[in-house]
């Protein structure tokens, strides 16, 4: 017994080493698949408020660019209003269209504006931190948009902050379709170039052309249909010859991202309970 204790004391540092390394690996396997723990992610109160302070300062450097973007968006919206106004004036809204609109769930989304207070693009698994949390109505699994297109999906929320899995993260796949032909595939980032992602699961016999627009499919409660994602930049048959290997140029510029909108689907809970009952 005495020898055993002496042995342990003599080699204490080896035991501490093994203990710390095993602890680290447990943490890695537990939290890195899907960082839902708010306590240990950048949504926690300490690092969250740190990031907010820093981004308050760095935001000033991007103000000019933000102004340009906002005024551009204003102009687009005004143009849209004018278009609808003229449509109304001509009373061209047919009965069929309004019926379709009321059936599609797209009208049941509200947008929560938020500021990106931390964002990375230089890793394999990229995340963003937002300055809004559950108190502002944000919940896990909500879609996140920029004015250009899809940006990511919320994966963790605290009271005042939330963490978003960026589209630049191979952990998420977004169901997408080609606007012209309506072929459905899933979009996933391959960890290489931050301006392009891969569109998978499009069979090789389907016709695909460079320049086709890729939009969300609306086959989940996360994104409604027809949110722009990117355009096909390059395509070729993959190694097995049964699928297309498609590169999609993303509309969202992840390097300059600073303001986003979070999609709140009105009947999300109801939709989820429905889905759960059939499983």
């Amino acid at each position: 017994m005495q020898k055993l204790i002496a042995f342990i004391v003599k080699n204490l540092y080896v035991f501490i080493f093994l203990f710390l390394e095993i602890l680290s690996l447990i943490l890695v396997s537990k939290y890195n698949e899907y960082p839902s723990s708010v306590m240990l992610s950048s949504a926690n109160a300490i690092s969250g408020s740190f990031y907010e302070k820093v981004s308050n300062v760095t935001n000033y450097f991007g103000l000019q660019h933000q102004n340009d973007l906002l005024s551009q968006e204003n102009a687009d919206l005004r143009r849209e209003i004018l278009m609808y106004q003229s449509l109304l004036d001509k009373k061209e809204l047919s009965v069929k269209d309004t019926l379709l609109d009321s059936i599609l769930p797209d009208k049941d989304y509200t947008l929560i504006p938020a500021k990106v207070i931390d964002n990375n693009t230089n890793k394999l698994r990229n995340f963003m931190t937002l300055n809004k949390g559950s108190k502002d109505g944000i919940a896990v699994d909500m879609g996140v948009l920029t004015t250009d297109g899809v940006a990511g999906i919320v994966c963790a929320v605290s009271d005042h902050f939330s963490v978003v899995i960026s589209l630049l993260n191979p952990q998420i796949k977004v169901s997408c379709l080609l606007q012209k032909s309506e072929y459905v595939g899933s979009l996933v980032w391959d960890g290489d170039d931050i301006t392009t992602a891969k569109l998978e699961d499009i069979s090789a016999h389907l016709e695909v052309a460079d320049g086709d627009t890729v939009v969300t499919s609306g086959f989940s409660s996360i994104f409604p249909r027809n949110i722009p994602v990117g355009v096909i930049e390059h395509h070729e048959k993959d190694k097995t010859n049964s699928y297309h290997d498609i590169d999609v140029r993303l509309f969202t510029n992840f390097k300059t991202i600073s303001h986003v909108k979070v999609l709140d689907f009105k009947h999300r809970d109801e939709y989820k309970t429905m889905q759960d009952t059939i499983q």
């Binding site: 080493f17 710390l20 602890l23 680290s24 690996l25």
Partner: peptide, 29 residues
Amino acid sequence: EWSMLLAFLLGLSVDIFSNTIGMHAFACV
């Protein structure tokens, strides 16, 4: 013993800010 504990704390601090819990801690220890 102490330098490993300090390294663990250091790695974990960087981990918490970059959403990579455990990875930096492992390499530092």
